[in-house]
Structure formats: structure tokens, C-alpha cells
Computed example of a mutant assay.
Amino acid sequence: MIIPAGLISYGIVSKGSPFFKGIDEDIRNGVSRGNNPQIKLDDFSRFAGTAGVFALDAVGIPAKHNLKQRLFTAAVSNMIMTATTRIMKSTISVWRPDGSANNSFPSGHAATAFVGAELLWQEYREESIWYGIAGYAAAAGTGYLRMYNDKHWFSDIAMGAGVGILSAKIAYWLLPLVDNRLQNPKKSYVILPIYTGGQFCLNASLQF
């Protein structure tokens, strides 16, 4: 809990502190300067960790939990993360570095990426810590690209990362409460991928 608590605390304090706002400006000047060519990889890399939770098991690297349990933790963590980031974006007015909108805080891309990184860490750290490290590296890369593309301040990334990690941890705390139902082989589930042209979604329905 130290890492997500620290990231969230940093994000909160940064919005009321001229000192941390100065850090945001300094990092932006060093990373973006507002004139970098756009790299859209962050729109896809944010899903890397969550995709890896299912892809690695599919190719024969066993996850810690079965498919239904992983669907539950992935769905719950992403629901918590999405609700939290949307509420914050709609209530805390922070302009993006490029001035395109005033919903910069926190970074939804970073939150999504760090949910996946924590899911990957929880499921595969007993197989090898390098899976989790790779997930966190991809998440950190996503955060960097959001700053490189001049879409977020560093404090937005920190807050998004904290929310993402904490959301995944909450999902795993809730897992034992529904574990017996998830492991019942007589229960059914449906996985439905949807691509809208601008966003990829994975809908999961569990019948208890």
C-alpha cells in the first residue's frame, strides 16, 4: 500500500502546491515542450498488462488464479478505476498541458495501464518477477508517452498510477468474498470483445 498511497498523496498535494506545479512545468519542458510529433502507441500500450494476464496463460504459462477469477479481478479493478477517474475528471478542473481540455487530472491512460501492471504482478510474480516488471515497464512507458504527447502533467500520471494500482488491489481483496461462486464449474460466463473504432472494450458476464 505504500506505493499507491504515496502516488495518490503526491497527486493530491501537487494540485495545491506552487512547488509541485513548478515540478510539473519543469518535467513538461524536459519531455515535451509542446512541439513533439504525436506517438499514438499509448492508446494501445495501456491495455498491455491486462491483455498479458490472459495471453500468458493461454500460451501455457499458468496464472495464479483461474479464468473466472481473473475475469472478476480484471472487471472489478477496471470498474473501480474508471468510476474513480471519471468522477475526479468531472469535479477537478485541470487544463491539459496542450490546452485541449480541462479534464487532465488524473490520467485515465496511466490508470488503465497500472491496473494491468498490478494484475500481471499478482498473477505471475510466483512464476517470475520479470512478468510483473515488464507490466510495470509498459505502464511507465504509457505514462511517459502521455507526457511526451503533451496530454498530461507528471502529477496526472502519478495520480492515475496510484488509482490504478489501488483499484487492482481492492479487486483482489474482494475476490475471496465471491471465490466459491467463481470456482463453481456449473456457472457460466460470456466474454464479448468490442471495438468501436476508437476504443477496445472487453465485456464479461458471469452467471451466479
Score class of each variant (00 low, 15 high):
T73K: 09
A74F: 03
A75R: 11
A75I: 14
V76D: 03
V76I: 14
S77D: 00
S77W: 00
S77Q: 01
S77V: 02
N78I: 10
N78L: 11
N78V: 10
M79S: 13
M79I: 14
M79G: 09
M81V: 07
M81A: 13
T82W: 01
T82Y: 00
T82E: 04
A83R: 06
A83T: 09
T84E: 01
T84W: 03
T84A: 12
T85M: 08
R86Y: 13
R86D: 14
R86A: 11
R86N: 15
I87D: 07
I87Q: 10
K89F: 02
S90N: 15
I92D: 01
I92N: 03
I92T: 11
I92E: 02
I92Y: 01
S93K: 14
S93P: 02
S93M: 11
S93I: 15
S93T: 15
V94R: 15
W95P: 09
R96C: 06
P97M: 02
P97Q: 00
P97F: 02
P97V: 06
D98E: 04
D98C: 05
D98Q: 03
G99I: 10
G99Q: 08
A101F: 09
N102E: 04
N102Q: 08
N103V: 05
N103W: 02
S104G: 03
S104V: 04
F105I: 04
P106E: 01
P106D: 00
S107P: 10
S107C: 10
S107G: 09
G108P: 07
G108Q: 05
G108V: 08
H109A: 10
H109P: 10
H109D: 12
A110F: 12
A110N: 13
A110V: 15
A111G: 08
T112L: 09
T112E: 11
T112G: 08
T112I: 13
A113N: 09
A113G: 07
A113Q: 07
A113T: 07
F114Y: 13
F114G: 00
V115Y: 08
G116W: 01
G116S: 12
A117M: 06
A117R: 07
E118I: 00
L119C: 01
L119S: 00
L120W: 05
L120A: 05
L120Y: 04
W121Y: 11
W121V: 00
W121D: 01
Q122C: 00
Q122Y: 00
E123G: 07
Y124A: 08
R125N: 13
R125D: 08
E126R: 09
E126H: 06
E126G: 02
E126C: 01
E127P: 00
S128E: 03
I129T: 11
I129W: 05
I129V: 14
I129A: 11
W130A: 14
Y131K: 06
Y131A: 01
G132N: 12
G132D: 10
I133Q: 06
A134I: 13
A134L: 15
A134N: 13
G135F: 00
G135Q: 11
Y136C: 06
Y136D: 07
A137C: 09
A137G: 10
A137L: 15
A138H: 03
A138Q: 06
A139H: 14
A140L: 14
G141Q: 10
G141D: 11
T142E: 04
T142F: 03
T142I: 10
Y144V: 07
Y144C: 04
Y144G: 05
Y144I: 07
Y144E: 04
L145K: 12
L145A: 13
R146I: 11
R146T: 12
R146G: 09
R146V: 12
M147N: 02
M147V: 07
Y148N: 06
N149R: 04
